[in-house]
Structures are given as C-alpha cells and as structure tokens.
Amino acid sequence: MKQFEPVIVAFCCHYCAYTAADMAGSKRLSYPANVNIVRVPCSGKVDAIHLMKAFEKGADGVYVAGCLEGDCHFKNGNTKVARRVAYVKKLLDEIGIGGERLEMFYMSAGMGERFARVATEMTKKIRKLGPNPTKAMSTGNQGEAVA
C-alpha cells in the first residue's frame, strides 16, 4: 500500500521562518516536500479564517511559524496569532477534525536547522494522524487540493 503523503501548509513570517526556510535551502538541509509555504508579512497577519480555509480546502496539517518571543517585527503579532491558533485548535476539536493538526512554532531567521526539523516533525506527526477527516469519504484526491 502506498504511504499516505500529507499536505501541509506552513504560514511563515517573512522576517523569520520564511528566511529560515531560505537558509535551510542554501545550507542544503533537506525537509519534506509535503510542506507548502505561504509567506506572510507577519505571523500576526494569519487570521482564524485562513487556518480554517486551509483545512477546508484539504490540508492535512497546518502550522504557523513566527518570530521568537519578543522579536516580532510588528511588536506582538506572533503572540496574537498564538492565541488565534489555540482558538482554532478548539474549534477543530469541536468539529472532529482534531486540534492536533494545527500548531504554532517560533524561530528566528537564522534557524535553518530548526525550520527543517519542524517541517520534518510536523510531516511525521500528520502522516501518523492520517488524512484530514473531511477527505475520508472521498477517495483518490489525497494530497491534491490546497495551497
């Protein structure tokens, strides 16, 4: 049987995680191709609706990567979005999608290794959890939709 390949959406802050992803690339650190990066001007720009829509459109896992605490370019976008992530996690639990499919991570622009590790771990975790339950009833479209 073919291994399930999850679709993962990573909302990455331009000032940290997105640069860290670049860094990972230039250092030739490999991370799973499952991760689809959406660059945002600040992690705080990510709203609950973006997280919801990612899942609705078929993502199996979603995460937000923002700056380290106290390092937000816009003061506190990262802590604001962390609360939103917690809120959406609850919502996902309520509708039986599972809050554990959504996570918040912090990193700096120089943390290429951390970026690669987070991407790998998240992919591993979601692979274990299986496909987004909204796709359970339809077949053959795993990993097609999204991003």
């Binding site: 919801m52 899942f55 609705e56 509708i95 039986g96 999608i97 909204t134 359970a136 009833m137």
Partner: peptide, 14 residues
Amino acid sequence: ILASALQMNFMKAG
C-alpha cells in the same frame, strides 16, 4: 469561520 466549520463537519461525513 462558522461556514467553514460547518462545511468541514459535513464533509467529514461525506
């Protein structure tokens, strides 16, 4: 957000 949540809830059941 509610529309999306409802949508996903029903999709889950096919």
